[in-house]
Nucleic acid binder design. Structure first.
Length: 305
RNA sequence: AGGGGUGUAGUUCAAUGGUAGAACGACGGUCUCCAAAACCGUUGAUGUGGGUUCAAUUCCUACCACCCCGG
């Protein structure tokens, strides 16, 4: 059966480069698995691949929306699923590359985001405290309530919305799913020891500034809607206090580096616990080594379930 | 080598003559549509030596360090 190669892992470990090397050797097509690289205006700060670096390898789901538009994992799942099937039809190998664990999981498992559910509960309940919201959810859907921390307002609200707009609980919808992979997959995770990783992150952030990050962010902040997803992105959101004079340049750079480090940690936790990942330490293996190991596993029929 | 001030967690700040708190950080974790988000847990400190006291981080004192003044 057709199989997907998934390259995830921590930021600044060379996922993009690995994917290109691999794709060239196995006739692969690359699908973006990153929540921020879908935005066409966000290039420098997301470390998006440049046109010349693609070396002729087909790339999909990059630059598909503007920062003025909204986008989220539900749309991503639909688009990516279609694209995977198209690539299979072309007898090519889909390689999904990116650091957004939820995006990858949503495509590879039978997630159902329930399009009928609207999210207007957040305005309806904006005056409620966290505890009051949590009490409402406990009445609607005790099972879900027990899995969500009362302070996690976002998820409590979402579970409330699911019940109020579909008439069924979130736990009901979850019980309808198989919680199994819908494709055969080979999961590759790239990591590095902490010192190397931090050096790579620091270097990359410094390079982004040299490449004109400030200008890019300035343009985006002008045109993006205030609640746009892109203003949550690391390397972008930190400019808001900088542009209003609350922090200086040096503090800005440090803040971006710090947030990137913390993000890398969360990525490791997510991939390690949500997928059966084969990890490669990029300090131990070269890109060429990793590519040949992946190909051996791929052709040997290995899959991670 | 005069005067004044400050020394509490990695950092910024609380507090008290009777078990030293917080925020941020660091570390670990959760994850079914704002996910580069949101959330949770753990960690860790009274500069040094004396003195007063049942008890000192708190009061006194010497030293050390840092800051300000010495127009």
């Amino acid at each position: 059966m057709s199989k997907i190669i998934v390259i995830g892992g921590q930021t600044a470990t060379g996922k993009t480069k690995l994917a290109i090397e691999l794709a060239k050797q196995i006739n692969g097509s690359i699908i973006n698995g990153d929540s921020m690289q879908v935005y066409k205006e966000m290039n420098i700060g997301t470390a998006k691949i440049k046109e010349v670096e693609k070396e002729g390898v087909p790339h999909y789901l990059f630059d598909i929306v503007s920062v003025k538009e909204s986008f989220s994992v539900a749309e991503y799942k639909d688009l990516a699923t279609k694209k995977i099937n198209e690539i299979f039809e072309q007898k090519r190998v889909p390689i999904i590359v990116g650091g957004t664990g939820l995006y990858l999981r949503s495509v590879l498992y039978d997630y159902d985001f329930n399009k009928e559910v609207s999210n207007d509960s957040s305005t309806k309940y904006k005056d409620k405290t966290n505890q009051e919201l949590y009490d409402i959810l406990k009445k609607y859907d005790l099972d879900s309530a027990l899995q969500i921390h009362p302070n996690n307002r976002k998820r409590v609200l979402r579970a409330i919305s699911i019940y109020e707009s579909s008439g069924k609980t979130k736990s009901y919808w979850l019980s309808k799913q198989k919680h199994k992979l819908v494709f055969d997959c080979l999961f590759i995770g790239l990591t590095a020891d902490r010192k190397t990783l931090y050096n790579s992150i620091n270097k990359r952030v410094d390079e982004m500034f040299v490449a004109g990050l400030e200008k890019e962010v300035h343009e985006i902040i002008k045109s993006a809607s205030p609640n746009s997803t892109c203003l949550q992105a690391i390397g972008y959101k930190e400019f808001i206090p900088y542009f209003s004079g609350l922090i200086n340049k040096e503090q800005l750079v440090e803040l971006i580096k710090k947030n990137t480090r913390r993000y890398a940690k969360r990525q490791y936790t997510f991939f390690n616990n949500q997928f059966k990942v084969t990890w490669y330490d990029t300090n131990v293996y070269t890109t060429t080594d990793i590519v040949s190991k992946i190909i051996a596993d791929f052709e040997g029929g290995k899959k991670n379930d």
